[in-house]
Design a protein around this nucleic acid. Structure first.
Lengths: 148, 148
DNA sequence: GGCAAGTAGTTGGCATGCCAACTTGTATCC
DNA sequence: GGATACAAGTTGGCATGCCAACTACTTGCC
């Protein structure tokens, strides 16, 4: 990010971006190293598992904030890896479901445990209850200020 | 992100990721729409301009948090667009500088003004001084808890 | 001097994800 | 009932960015 220090909020913004990126990269690396998953794949598996094993592609697409075409290609790769499977929707011939496989489910669960452990060990334990409350308040304000 | 609500910090983390992503996408779209630049290109131009117009590739690479190979290819594209130029380092035949062109500099400056305006209009004005101070404190704590 | 080790940058190959265009199927409206 | 608008997914093409391997050069050590 640019090295601009004209104001307090600019400094805070640059710090936010840098910290978020560093943390995210670490989480991504951990997921890859320990479970052979990208975060995109983990998100798909976690959502499917939580939803009972199956979700419509449109729902999944918005749940994980991925474009329809991006999801389509991601599911191709995950299908090839034996983690998910596509099923047609009997009520709408245009639509389809993604269904988690037993192997995908097992992976989702072990990855989830270790992912949460990592988050707790860094994000969770570095911050006090007040920090968490402040951060939540601030993010809600930013979120509310965004269009859409 | 997964829809997991086991703890306050998990909720805060998911909110942070979602908000950050939404905000970032908006900034990126604004930069593209108003100036025809990606944020990666803007970062290069902003750093070069602030550094007086020229930086060594290694320095630039770490300043904008891009891998050497990623920077190399980015500079190829920006060179083709007439925004930057490569110059050899007379003191080290392995090394090179990136130099901003007059066109790149003009673009950097107008993009910078409008980029800051956008940030102020959303991030800056949605948050109080106390929010900014809290956010800075929290991000420093997270940053300090990361390895490296 | 001269070889080993390290450094700067580039290239090839791959993964990811977007948009635009397309195909197929459903819904609406007359 | 049939044209027309709309919706779900897929595909092709492109941009981006990483890692591994490579080239070329510089440094350290003897």
């Amino acid at each position: 990010m640019a090295l601009e220090f004209e104001s307090r909020w600019m400094t805070a913004w640059l710090l936010l971006v840098r910290t978020h990126t560093r943390f995210w990269d670490q989480i991504e690396a951990h997921m890859r190293r320990e479970h052979g998953l990208t975060m995109a794949r983990y998100d798909v598996l976690a959502h499917l598992d939580m939803a009972g094993g199956r979700l419509g592609l449109s729902d999944l697409s918005s749940a994980i904030a991925l474009s329809p075409s991006g999801l389509s290609k991601l599911l191709d790769r995950m299908d090839a890896s034996g983690l998910v499977q596509r099923d047609p929707d009997p009520d709408d011939a245009r639509a389809a479901f993604a269904t988690i496989t037993p192997r995908g489910r097992a992976l989702a669960r072990s990855a989830r445990a270790s992912h949460h452990e990592l988050l707790r060990a860094t994000f969770g334990s570095a911050l006090s209850d007040r920090d968490i409350a402040d951060l939540t308040r601030i993010m809600k304000r930013v979120d509310a200020s965004l269009p859409g």
